[in-house]
């Protein structure tokens, strides 16, 4: 099973990582090499084995009380915002060419 250049381009599109043609070639070969390195896990018979998503096995039901805490001021919230307007965070057109997904 190997990924084509088009497959990789589609992943880059989804992951919002713009790649040039040359980068796409390099990324395609990297991806296929990297996936080949993962072969060892395909050799396991893991039917009936439960997955471990969290390393602290028996930890459950961690929650907090519904009590308010101090957050950020507007100024703190906007400190790192590259483009803001009237207290809002501004973005260019969300729909449009290449953005309709």
């Amino acid at each position: 099973m190997s990924l084509s250049r088009q497959d990789v381009a589609a992943i880059a599109d989804y992951a919002r990582i713009g790649l040039t043609d040359a980068e796409l070639d390099a990324m395609t070969s990297y991806m296929n090499d990297a996936i080949a390195l993962l072969d060892p896990i395909l050799e396991y018979d893991i039917a009936g084995v439960e997955p471990t998503y969290h390393p602290i096995g028996d930890l459950a039901n961690v929650a907090r009380d519904d009590a308010a805490a101090v957050g950020l001021s507007l100024q703190e919230a906007l400190t790192n915002v590259p483009d803001s307007q009237g207290g809002y965070v501004r973005v260019p057109a969300i729909l449009g060419e290449g953005g309709a997904s």
Partner: peptide
Amino acid sequence: HATLARQTS
């Protein structure tokens, strides 16, 4: 960039 998707990418 005129669209967000392009700006983000």
